[in-house]
Simulated assay, not measured.
Amino acid sequence: MNAAIDQPDQPASVPAAPFLAADVGGTHARVALIQATQNAGRGVEVLAYRKFACGDFGGLAELLQAFVASELRAPVRHCVLACAGQLMGDEVLNDNSAWPIHLPSLRLALALDDIVALNDFEALGYALDNPLACSGRLLCGPDRPTDGPTLVIGPGTGLGAAVRLPGPAGGRVLTTEAGQMDFAPHSIREREILAQLAPDGGYLPYEHIVSGPGLLTLYRTLCSLRGETPWLATPEAVTAAAMACSDAQAAEAVEIFCAALGSFVGSVAMTFMASGGVYLAGGFLDSMFGLLERSAFEERFLHGRSVRAFLSQVPVWVTEHGQHGVLGAARWYLERGGTVAAASRHAVAGGPSP
């Protein structure tokens, strides 16, 4: 399996040998063996790639070791991780992680020279001007390339978002925690849901509504409001029941989910004036594209204010996650070369690997 991504000139310190790139979410991890290439318009090549269920492993070290044991014929000395959450010191902090992620421990367990981490949606942002920008189905807005800031947003185990700002050398990607913004109800029904989930008032992030677990929360809350017992146990089951029109609460949960997603995406698009468009990434939304297309997403995305004229010119695509995360992480790693290596030595201080 091979995939390529355009790559700018690399600093001399970039490792010539293959390295690991992993895209680690709350539910799945995608791991690849990457080789920097010297082809026209330098790029990276995927030498091996696998997708794992995080719940099958006791920790990230065991997951990465499983990939190494099955796919590698020679040791690797470098690794870049795109992780849901934020890097604080030498740990990745995320309430939705399957397990703690501690860089020094991973470095020792895998006998690496260096290991570095970035946010998973930041990595997707670095793939925006490559395969991600050429894939997906148009959900709303004009179907044409535009200039300006570009957003990548994805509800999965959590709710991730990043923005790519145009500029020299491909621009700059900013990670965000937009999914932690306060949920703002737009209907009587949504106010009832908010009162049920936060009966004493206070903070309820969008992530608790607009995510896979959030969809299940919506379904269970609607069952409670109607005095019925929930019988669907997973977000996938809720989506399937809504598609089959076999459960009224499931159908309403999906409708509210899509509408709330539209409000959230529109608000973030307004914040960054995302004239370059919005990419909704992940298999979760891709699998329910028909429901999303028939929902109130577009109306809620456009909002009801003067900014509607601007937002109507912002294209919104739905795209599969695929290898974009590992490719974006590899691009970020190679673009930074020696800077990344220096940062990793500081982050995992304790001497060379054994």
Rank of each mutant, 00 (worst) to 15 (best):
L112M: 07
I101W: 15
L64M: 15
G89L: 09
D90K: 02
S70E: 15
M88N: 13
E71G: 08
A29Q: 03
N119V: 05
F52C: 08
A82V: 02
R77L: 07
A84L: 07
L103V: 01
L72E: 11
A22W: 01
L93Y: 11
G55R: 10
S70H: 06
V68P: 13
A12C: 08
P8R: 13
Q65M: 08
F52S: 05
L103K: 14
A82W: 08
H28S: 15
A53V: 11
L110Q: 01
L63A: 08
S97K: 05
R50V: 04
L103M: 06
M88S: 13
A69S: 14
L110V: 00
G26D: 02
Y49C: 08
V68F: 04
D114L: 00
R77Q: 12
A36P: 11
N96R: 07
F52M: 06
G58V: 04
L33F: 04
L87C: 09
G26R: 02
P104S: 07
N96K: 06
E62A: 10
A74N: 06
S70M: 09
A4P: 00
E45D: 15
L33Q: 07
C83S: 13
D23P: 12
A16F: 01
G58Y: 01
V92E: 14
L87Y: 05
S13F: 08
R73F: 00
G55D: 14
R73K: 04
L20P: 03
L106C: 08
A61P: 08
K51V: 06
A21Q: 01
